[in-house]
């Protein structure tokens, strides 16, 4: 009789363990799958979907961004893009004393591996005996002479470069009115 009772308890326990066995079976199927998927190496950063996208790695165009910031005499900065490859920067030079003034205005980025050519020119809306120049990569390019004559410069941007362009103006006497300077960068 004891043997029969033991057998009955064993059968009951056995049927209770069946769901656990089924879960065990599912885990034996699921865990190796997840482990195999997890062991597959990956790269850090951009995913494979970015390979065929003309994104930051393969963009043939240069990028120009406004630096911003505060300056005592250069206000109301504006950057717009009249057409592809053309960047137009404008600011207002307010009345100032004789002297030299400069401000970082634009961040110019060339994400491609090739050297890009750009032409830079500027206009000063009102002649004011002020020389305007652009400083890029430690080189100074005079864009408007003291006599008001505009110049266009061709600049080469190295591949994978990221430079800050400074606008510098030099006034040989006091200027009592506001003026507007417009710098145009054209990607060739």
């Amino acid at each position: 009789m004891v043997k029969r009772e033991v057998k009955r308890i064993r059968n009951k326990l056995g049927s209770m363990l069946d769901p656990i066995a089924i879960i065990g079976m599912l885990l034996l199927l699921l865990l190796p799958t997840l482990t195999v998927m997890n062991l597959s190496p990956r790269t850090k950063g951009s995913s494979v979907n970015d390979r065929n996208v003309l994104g930051e790695q393969d963009n043939p165009n240069i990028g120009v961004v406004l630096v911003g910031g505060i300056h005592d005499y250069m206000k109301e900065e504006l950057l717009d893009f009249p057409a592809e490859g053309i960047f137009r920067y404008r600011n207002t030079i307010i009345a100032h004393e004789k002297g030299r003034y400069s401000k970082p205005i634009l961040q110019i980025v060339n994400n491609s591996s090739d050297i890009k050519d750009v032409s830079v020119s500027a206009i000063l809306y009102q002649p004011s005996n002020t020389e305007v120049s652009l400083i890029l990569d430690e080189k100074e390019y005079i864009l408007v002479s003291k006599q008001g004559e505009p110049f266009t410069h061709s600049i080469k941007l190295d591949g994978k470069s990221d430079d800050i362009a400074y606008l510098k103006f030099t006034s040989s006497n006091k200027v009592s009115f506001n003026n507007t300077v417009e710098v145009q960068i054209v990607q060739k």
Partner: peptide, 21 residues
């Protein structure tokens, strides 16, 4: 899922290792 991941430098290396493993 397991909070540990093997990383390689280049995508071509990832393709090679994943494919043949």
């Amino acid at each position: 899922l397991f909070s540990i991941q093997v990383y390689l430098e280049e995508y071509s290396d990832v393709l090679f290792i994943n494919s043949y493993s």
